[in-house]
Design a protein around this nucleic acid. Structure first.
Lengths: 204, 204
DNA sequence: CACAAAGCTTACGCGCAAGTAAAATTGAGT
DNA sequence: ACTCAATTTTACTTGCGCGTAAGCTTTGTG
């Protein structure tokens, strides 16, 4: 038998798990205290290693932040993929986009995508993240426009409407904790109910 | 004549104007780069003085942040006062509360009330601000409850509904700039339209 | 004009936290 | 049990930025 060791994690796998764990801890503390107010010593302490150990997994502090933010953007990007493969009206796709987005955010719990955080990164990574942000925003607006065109949504200002809901969604991480009484799916359902009722076109 | 100098600002007045100007500059940079990433030298440079001049107006960096955040909280507190003196249903008061809140925020342009910012302050000021935050939130929820009781709003989860809109509102400062094509009153009207349509009770 | 108070500057001390070098430890495969 | 790479540590350098001390400049007032 080449390897009856299937159940036990390999070195590579352990390394990856430790990386993920470190990212989760880092993201939590960054969100609580802010990137610049958080020292690597603090993050390392919480994990149970010394600061220098982190440098074995991440190039530097910026890299750590970058990957934390990437988690958050991936939530949006994955939500978009789900929405695109969803067969249905623009109205339904819009709903799917935001439902997935919200639930991903609450599951993954990455770093806030604040201006302060993004601007703490090197120019190149800033560009990349801003680009991804714009992409999600454009997709969201496009769906709203299509939904208006198909008559399922009232004639609204698309920019305002998109910002309205994106704001509410991004804010979720501020008040919804990991051990919240409310499950991610409950929160997303409530939010969608509020949003969709706000924009839906009703028969005269 | 005791003083034919009425048109010219007195020393006290000039001092106060400079303080205000400094606060506005500080809040803008804090919002762009984050509190800890912003040096006093930077703020002073932008104003056109040296760092030490700021110490003539503010006790220290924390004090500067504290007052920037206070601007934002005052927007909420003043909105509440306006709403309370407004004669009408809970539904109308709710609308008034948020309309004023949004417009004040866009006019005053204080500092974001993020966890990171608040936790950068001394314990005592943290307490005070958290208290004020809770007060506004409680008032918002109370109005929603009353509006449900009076039958003008659907039976919704009050906590979720309040967080939903507070999130959208707080996010405004992220995308609405001072020279935005859209006036504060236009933005607030749009937002209220979206929110109120989302929660209103409709005849069967 | 004198002179005090207000307003601001230059020069510096000091602590904290990012990042590095090199040594110590662990543990998987032989 | 031995080896060597993977992992983590201890000990250190460095720079940035807050805050202070001491002095210079401006301005209103008698």
């Amino acid at each position: 038998m080449a390897n009856w060791n299937g159940a036990v994690a390999s070195r590579e796998e352990i390394r990856e798990l430790k990386r993920r764990a470190a990212l989760r801890v880092a993201a939590r503390i960054f969100n609580e205290k802010g990137y610049h107010a958080t020292s690597l010593d603090e993050i390392a302490d919480e994990i149970g290693v010394t600061k220098t150990a982190l440098y074995y997994y991440f190039k530097n502090k910026e890299q750590l932040l970058y990957e934390c933010i990437k988690v958050t953007y991936d939530c949006g990007a994955n939500a978009r993929l789900e929405a695109e493969k969803f067969n249905g009206t623009a109205f339904e796709k819009l709903q799917e986009l935001y439902r997935r987005f919200m639930e991903n955010l609450m599951e993954e719990r990455g770093a806030y995508t604040t201006m302060a955080n993004i601007r703490s990164l090197p120019a190149e990574q800033q560009q990349e993240l801003m680009e991804r942000r714009r992409n999600l925003d454009r997709y969201s607006r496009m769906l709203i426009e299509k939904a208006i065109a198909e008559g399922s949504v009232r004639k609204l200002d698309v920019r305002i409407t998109s910002n309205f809901f994106l704001g509410a969604v991004n804010w979720i991480l501020r008040w919804h904790t990991e051990d919240d009484a409310m499950k991610p799916s409950d929160v997303s359902a409530h939010f969608l109910d509020l949003f969709m009722n706000g924009i839906v076109q009703r028969p005269a």
